[in-house]
């Protein structure tokens, strides 16, 4: 109980940060002036058409990738599993890029198509990783399979970008390093499926707790493990697929954030999932805020910042958890 009380504090920080990030940027937006209705017309347009959708998208995607990370770590019973590390994100990127090569419609409907194919790509990769892992029976081979699939998918994305001279196909940089630069209202509307998937994942908290004990243990606790696995994989593929289609791969957030919650609060998924959602939103908001102001008016891709923070943390985990991870 005492541990759940940290969540409202995190939520408050997120709220304050949101207000801050709405005004921060290469153009300063005065929220007070906006509220009074006497803001400059250009500033008003920047706020409604660029700043607000961007901040909303950062919150949604940040929350999404963190919750997807928490769920995948629980399902794979491995604190090092992460959609971006085991190839789910790049599988999604590959399919999104593939859709763009075949269909260059960039209207809202086109965006839906890109998101849909990214979802299928993410789903396919998760399924392959799990299938290969179960066939060989060890967690390390599952992670290694994920790393191999990741490399293949990244190569595929590179190939698509290289072959396609069309400007509509976003660059490799976009897919590999992520960006909230293209945020607009259609993207925000499509992204709204992410909070829905988060809610469904939160409802699986008890089952996710049980599956960390082992598949057999979860079965003995009355859980249909095969069905549970299917639900978790579909829900995380929705989050990762849509997230990647809209903003590219935001690496390491899904790995780091659930750990921070476990380290500071609890491993209980009833705490880890909401906690990861809020903390993930906070971290991605900050990273995006830094990315778009530090070399303003140019932008630093968000993935550079998240990797610079997440990479060392990942190494720390490997050293710290040596011998306990089955690798």
């Amino acid at each position: 109980m005492r541990k759940i009380t940290k969540l409202p504090i995190l939520a408050l920080i997120l709220l304050l940060l949101t207000v801050m990030m709405l005004s921060l940027g290469s153009t300063e937006v005065s929220l007070a002036a906006l509220l009074r209705g006497n803001a400059d017309a250009v500033v008003e347009t920047i706020f409604w058409e660029i700043r607000l959708p961007r901040v909303l998208l950062a919150i949604i995607v940040g929350a999404g990738v963190s919750v997807a990370g928490a769920a995948i770590q629980g399902l794979f019973r491995n604190p090092l599993a992460d959609p971006a590390l085991i190839g789910v994100s790049s599988g999604a990127a590959l399919f999104a890029a593939g859709f763009m090569v075949l269909n260059l419609d960039t209207s809202a409907l086109g965006l839906l198509g890109v998101s849909g194919s990214a979802f299928i790509g993410g789903l396919l990769t998760s399924w392959l990783v799990l299938e290969i892992g179960q066939r060989s029976g060890t967690i390390s081979s599952m992670l290694l399979a994920g790393i191999a699939l990741n490399a293949i998918a990244i190569a595929g994305v590179g190939l698509f970008s290289y072959l396609s001279s069309d400007l509509e196909l976003r660059s490799v940089t976009f897919w590999a390093l992520g960006s909230f630069n293209g945020a607009d209202w259609p993207s925000v509307v499509i992204a709204l499926i992410i909070p829905v998937a988060i809610v469904f994942l939160a409802r699986e908290s008890r089952n996710l707790n049980a599956i960390t004990l082992g598949d057999k243990d979860a079965f003995y606790l009355g859980i249909d493990v095969t069905r549970l696995r299917q639900r978790i994989i579909v829900l995380t593929a929705i989050i990762v697929g849509v997230g990647v289609a809209l903003t590219g791969i935001v690496a390491f957030v899904g790995l780091v954030v659930p750990h921070l919650i476990r380290l500071t609060s609890s491993s209980n998924h009833a705490v880890v999932i909401p906690g990861s959602a809020i903390l993930g939103a906070i971290l991605v908001l900050i990273a995006d805020g830094v990315g778009r102001t530090i070399i303003s008016p140019a932008e630093l891709p968000i993935g550079i910042l998240t990797a610079l923070l997440g990479g060392p943390f990942f190494i720390y985990l490997i050293i710290h958890q040596k011998g306990k991870l089955g690798i």
Partner: peptide, 8 residues
């Protein structure tokens, strides 16, 4: 047991 997460 396969539990590797820091539950209490």
């Amino acid at each position: 047991s396969e539990l590797e997460f820091p539950f209490s």
